[in-house]
């Protein structure tokens, strides 16, 4: 299959560059430092959660947009070969997202394994954290590719991408909080639920907090989620919503590619 060949080349091309190791080293040191400081697997996981749900989207966005633009000429070379354009772009997309996910899994996996993860009950929480981090990488790389496909101007494209990350990571929560305060007198459970579904970062936070079952940290939406669905269905729902979050931008890439000029 040609798509696997392209995936392989993108993957190896990325793994040869320095940032790939920097990203891996960052997670390695983060993992060791957290475990050393906390001396407690579960606590370390909560701290990691806060880092991962902000950092994986940022790195996914920045590298997604940079990789698409910087490999434009390489893409052109591939486009002259008898290969379908969707195969080329999706091969690169999978190569980048996988490379990011592998850095995350290996970088955090080593310190946690060394600490004795397998002897702990926290192993499933940890696994879920890695799944969410990987999913967020796939989602934000796809979103970044969408922006890159629509914007020919690289500087503008980069700006939009950063703005998108800022929106989901910071601005969205602010708006959400304000609306909760303003509409305090109304029943806004349903609104809160839908608003959470519409942000993959919030969704990830709720999902892992439900798994960890720390109601004090869950906040308003977490509580709403639990009340509406119970932990089991709530988790399935939010995980499903994350997968939808991944599929929608991927389908839009496909649609954009039909008309794209290279």
């Amino acid at each position: 299959m040609t798509i696997f060949k392209i995936l392989k080349y993108s993957f190896f091309d990325l793994n040869r560059s320095r940032w790939s190791y920097a990203y891996l080293l960052f997670y390695l040191s983060l993992g060791f430092v957290l475990l050393f400081l906390n001396n407690d697997l579960s606590k370390a996981i909560i701290t990691l959660l806060n880092v991962i749900i902000v950092l994986t989207p940022l790195i996914g966005t920045v590298l997604g947009i940079t990789y698409f633009y910087s490999s434009a000429e390489f893409t052109e070379l591939l486009l002259a070969q008898p290969i379908k354009r969707t195969t080329i772009i999706f091969g690169q997309y999978l190569g980048l997202s996988l490379s990011l996910s592998v850095s995350l899994v290996i970088g955090l996996g080593i310190p946690f394994l060394a600490y004795g993860l397998f002897r702990s009950s926290a192993i499933f929480d940890f696994a879920l954290l890695l799944v969410i981090g990987s999913l967020l990488s796939f989602i934000f790389v796809a979103l970044a590719f969408n922006i890159a496909l629509s914007r020919e101007n690289r500087v503008k494209g980069f700006g939009y991408a950063i703005l998108m990350w800022l929106f989901f990571a910071v601005i969205y929560d602010g708006l959400f909080l304000i609306s909760l305060v303003v509409f305090d007198d109304y029943p806004i459970d349903r609104f809160a639920l839908i608003a959470t579904m519409l942000n993959p970062i919030d969704l990830s936070r709720i999902l892992i907090l439900m798994k960890l079952d720390i109601s004090a940290l869950m906040g308003y939406t977490g509580a709403v989620f639990e009340r509406f669905f119970g932990t089991g269905i709530g988790m399935t729902m939010s995980l499903g919503a994350l997968v939808v979050w991944c599929l929608v931008p991927v389908l839009r890439i496909r649609q954009k590619l039909v008309k794209k000029d290279f």
């Binding site: 560059s17 000429e73 390489f74 070969q81 008898p82």
Partner: peptide, 30 residues
């Protein structure tokens, strides 16, 4: 496109690869 050879106007290649690797890669794809 299997029956077309194309020389693009400005050649930019992935900088990480060597010439041999690039040639091998294109051969592999076609």
């Amino acid at each position: 496109r299997d029956n077309i050879s194309y020389l693009p106007q400005i050649a930019h290649f992935p900088g990480n690869l060597s010439v041999t690797e690039l040639v091998r890669m294109v051969r592999d794809l076609r």
